[in-house]
Write a protein that binds this DNA or RNA. Structure first.
Length: 680
DNA sequence: GAGCACTGC
């Protein structure tokens, strides 16, 4: 797809409105303004939810299940746990409040501890990966949904808890979706076994109310008012063939008409188009007449270094307009105050999964209505705002109502393994709120079967002892398997490092502007054995210089992600020790590391063809070496790889050179079917 | 010779 239109957008820019005004659907709602000078207990009483306090307490005391609908700003997340505690509800145990994100869990716990005037970690605490700030006194516990799920593996009835609050349920993360089933089952079993009852409160924004209520035994829905500021909606008159061009026009239209203090937030799909549009905006802004004020354009996306991300919070100089070009990171994860205008391209980049091919595709697609509302809500948090939707109202009406839950578009191997570890008897018929397709479930079981994690008797799937061990690692099953195999090859220390490197965001910086320098620096670590061992070399060098930051800069290594590797590695190593594994280092015998990787990743193997192309051994589809691989120029006969990425071709990413014999010895049955006779 | 939204254990 050509990215550059024939004419640079700058020349196409014509002032004038492609929009018309629509005076309907006002009233998104917005969080309250923080005011440090107001005492904390007064702030609590000023929240909209306070009016409903006694009524809420009465209801929640009686109900086993409740669905609580309330927009941001109602105060539900900070207040409900305190109301429960103050009313003595569930005091025999702990009230757990789950969040999809770590930062949210931590900041909510901090806030509630402040409100209760206690030290964090006493009455109020939090638990996220690598951090547990709780004690025996903790009664209100904020945690990530993934963390509660992990805990459930050791305690499927969640007996430490009397109340579980599943917050931000509308986001439908895989973890929340699995938790729905886990808490529902725990609730039922505790009732059957005459144990202390478990209260389940689902908290969500406005959507999906019926689904939640239906699923939790037709539980009552309680509505909470939020604080709203009106929002003015604009739609385009005509469908836009080029949303980038439309975004550009809109930015400058607003820039010409609105006071400079009004910030603009534009929702786009990815790094590349954001950087391109940022350049174009800056170019045009330079050549505008003096009647237009200056403009500062700030890109925002997850892979941006943290220091640059912080720029979005700095106010623009007086008289200068702030324009933020963002991915959907600004939908939920990063909240920027002072946004008066939102421009919504209506597009998003999202992952899809094809269970038949096992392929994940990252594709630009239309947002859902729910997502469009979420984006709109980011306008005018403190005051009224405007939203420019770069699509027609008809197009809006035709958007799907809700984003497809993640559980219906991802590889389910880890989910199925976790369900089995939770002791769910009939995994194939697990009570999901939104069932994944049977093909996706079957494909997951098949993968686990190949890894030796499950056994099958007819329809019944059971966990093997190996599978049980695999489930104790917070990793994708194939990586857990690779670690568990590593003692056989006397290279556990190396494999732990490699798997840790693979389970954090990339540790390699690749600034396009300094490409040559970057390649030169990386050359020192490159080995013809492949990407895994190149990464291992980098980690070893990093350790040798004691994690020196200067060294990281010189070698284009992301020091923050590299420290994370250390944390992950320590956690994985701890689990190995608990499993009484013998951990050895193979030193310079890197062949044994590759052999171990071949045994763990044999399902992801590819074979060189006589014409120089590659074929994946399991599906026989054509694949290619990704140009970012150190093996890109090489033509190894056999490789294993971490993942397939479908973009312009089907690319293998992160490759390791292997022997065909190793693959056969890893899975003789499997390869008898897959391997073709080697040609000379 | 490509180019990767966002979380999380």
């Amino acid at each position: 797809m050509p990215h550059n239109p024939d004419h640079p957008p700058a020349k196409k820019f014509k002032p004038g409105s492609p929009f018309f005004r629509i005076d309907k659907k006002p009233g998104m709602l917005l969080p309250r303004k923080e005011n440090a000078s107001v005492p904390i207990d007064v702030q609590r009483k000023n929240l909209p939810i306070y009016q409903a306090k006694s009524q809420l307490i009465n209801q929640l005391r009686q109900l086993h299940n409740a669905v609580l609908i309330g927009e941001t700003g109602s105060g539900k997340t900070t207040q409900i746990p305190q109301y429960l505690y103050e009313a003595g509800i569930g005091r025999q145990g702990i009230v757990a409040v789950t969040q999809p994100r770590r930062v949210a869990a931590i900041s909510l716990a901090t806030r509630v501890a402040e409100e209760k005037r206690t030290q964090l970690g006493k009455l109020v605490g939090y638990t996220v990966r690598f951090e547990d700030v709780t004690s025996s006194e903790t009664k209100l516990k904020f945690m990530t949904d993934g963390m509660l799920l992990r805990e459930a593996i050791g305690d499927p009835l969640l007996l430490r808890y009397t109340v579980v609050v599943l917050d931000e349920a509308h986001e439908r993360t895989v973890h929340t979706d699995v938790l729905f089933g886990v808490v529902k089952a725990a609730q039922r079993k505790r009732r059957e076994q005459n144990k202390v009852p478990l209260k389940v409160i689902v908290m969500s924004a406005t959507m999906d109310v019926d689904l939640f209520s239906q699923y939790f035994n037709k539980s009552p829905v309680l509505y909470l008012e939020g604080r709203q500021h009106p929002i003015q909606m604009y739609y385009t008159k005509q469908p836009q063939s080029d949303y980038l061009q439309a975004a550009l026009v809109s930015v400058f239209q607003i820039h010409q008409e609105a006071p400079a203090s009004h910030d603009i937030l534009v929702f786009m799909t990815g790094q590349e188009e954001i950087e391109a549009l940022a350049r174009t905006c800056r170019d045009i802004a330079k050549h505008l007449p003096d009647s237009c004020g200056p403009m500062t354009v700030i890109p925002l996306y997850a892979s941006l270094p943290p220091a640059q991300q912080l720029r979005v919070f700095q106010p623009a100089p007086k008289g200068c307009r702030k324009v933020i070009l963002s991915t959907n990171i600004a939908e939920t994860s990063i909240t920027i105050s002072g946004i008066k205008y939102v421009i919504d391209t209506g597009m998003v980049k999202a992952k899809r999964f094809n269970p038949e091919s096992g392929l994940e595709v990252l594709a630009v697609q239309r947002v859902s209505k729910a997502q469009a509302w979420q984006r709109a809500g980011r306008a005018g948090r403190e005051d009224s705002g405007s939203v420019y939707r770069l699509y027609t109202e008809d197009e809006f009406d035709n958007l799907i109502p809700m984003t497809v839950p993640e559980i219906q578009r991802c590889n389910l191997a880890s989910v199925v393994l976790q369900l089995l570890a939770l002791g769910i008897p009939d995994v194939m018929n697990f009570d999901f709120m939104s069932k994944p397709s049977p093909e996706a479930m079957r494909s997951a079981v098949e993968q686990l079967d190949l890894l030796g994690a499950v056994g099958r008797k007819g329809e019944q799937v059971t966990l093997t002892p190996l599978g049980k061990k695999m489930a104790s690692f917070p990793l994708e099953p194939r990586y857990a398997k690779t670690i568990l195999l590593s003692p056989d090859f006397q290279c556990s220390e190396e494999v732990l490092t490699i798997v840790s490197l693979l389970s954090v965001d990339t540790v390699l910086y690749n600034p396009p502007a300094r490409r040559e320098e970057c390649l030169a620096a990386r050359k020192k670590f490159t080995t013809s054995e492949g990407d895994h061992l190149t990464l291992l070399n980098i980690y070893r060098a990093f350790k040798k210089v004691n994690a020196n930051k200067e060294w990281c800069r010189e070698n284009f290594v992301n020091s923050r992600n590299m420290s994370m590797v250390g944390e992950v590695r320590a956690q994985l190593r701890e689990i190995c020790l608990k499993l009484s594994m013998k951990l050895e280092s193979c030193g310079s015998d890197t062949g044994s590391v590759r052999r171990c990787l071949a045994h763990g990743l044999f399902m992801n193997a590819a074979e060189l063809q006589p014409d120089g192309s590659y074929t994946a051994l399991d599906t026989h589809q054509p694949v290619a070496i990704h140009p970012s691989s150190v093996l890109f120029q090489a033509k190894p006969a056999y490789v294993v790889f971490n993942e397939l990425l479908h973009t312009s071709k089907c690319y293998m990413r992160d490759l390791c050179l292997v022997d065909a014999d190793w693959l056969v010895e890893a899975a003789p049955e499997y390869f008898r079917r897959k391997l073709r006779p080697t040609k000379s």
